[in-house]
Structure formats: structure tokens, C-alpha cells
Design a protein around this nucleic acid. Sequence first.
DNA 1: CACGGCCGGCGTCACTCAAG
DNA 2: CTTGAGTGACGCCGGCCGTG
Length: 108
Amino acid sequence: MAVTGDETAATGDMPTYQIRAPTTALPQGVVMATSPGSLHSPQQLAEEATRKRELRLMKNREAAKECRRGKKEYVKCLESRVAVLEVQNKKLIEELETLEDICSPKTD
DNA sequence: CACGGCCGGCGTCACTCAAG
DNA sequence: CTTGAGTGACGCCGGCCGTG
């Protein structure tokens, strides 16, 4: 996946990490039921709202799990990449030292 | 043991963003 | 504008480990 210029393309390689202040905790559980013609009594409306909320929570629960799983995988990926790059870097440094030895004028 | 600190996982809320 | 998916932040809980 090509990160399109945008530094946070949120596509596996660079998740969008955002810091947010803990905004005022509104009381919630308030779900607006967009009155589908078939529902009338407040009772039914409330039940529908509850059902929707539970569904939403369930989906979000699953989404959160998946999100964490993906994040862990992403971090593991980065860590192994770091390991590879460290080895590569070490080799290059060694090579550089060897070449410097070969090329340096002998003083004695 | 009992405890306290640290860590990882979970559920939920609040928010953003893209699609319809 | 509405809706659904994705994700950061927060708080809680249980397990592990070192220390007195």
C-alpha cells in the first residue's frame, strides 16, 4: 500500500494516532429512534432503541478487538523490520571500516 | 502469605472519516 | 445529512512478580 503523500494514510503502515482530551462525559444511552412507521408506543420505541444500542455495542466490541489485533500485528511487523535494519546497518558499518582500512594511506 | 506495582486485555465512549 | 467502521482514550479487572 502506497502512503499517498499524506503522512497518515491509515493504511496499515501508519495508523492515525490521535491524542484527545477527555471531553465532558455526557450522559448517554440516548439513542434517537428514527420513527419507522411500524413503531408507535413509547414502549416499543424504547425497546427498539435498546436493541439498537446493544447491537452497536456488540459491533464496537468486535471492532475494538480486531483493531487491537491489527495494531499488535503492526507493531510486531515494525519490530522485526527494526531487527532486520539493525543487522543491515551493522554490516554496512563493518564494510565501511574494511574499505577505510584498505584505502587509508599507510603511515609507517 | 499479603501487598503493591506493572502489564495486557477488555468494554465502552467520543470522535473522525468515508460512503451513500 | 446520516450511517457505519475504525480507533484513541479511559477505567476496570485479573494475572504475574518482586518485596517486606
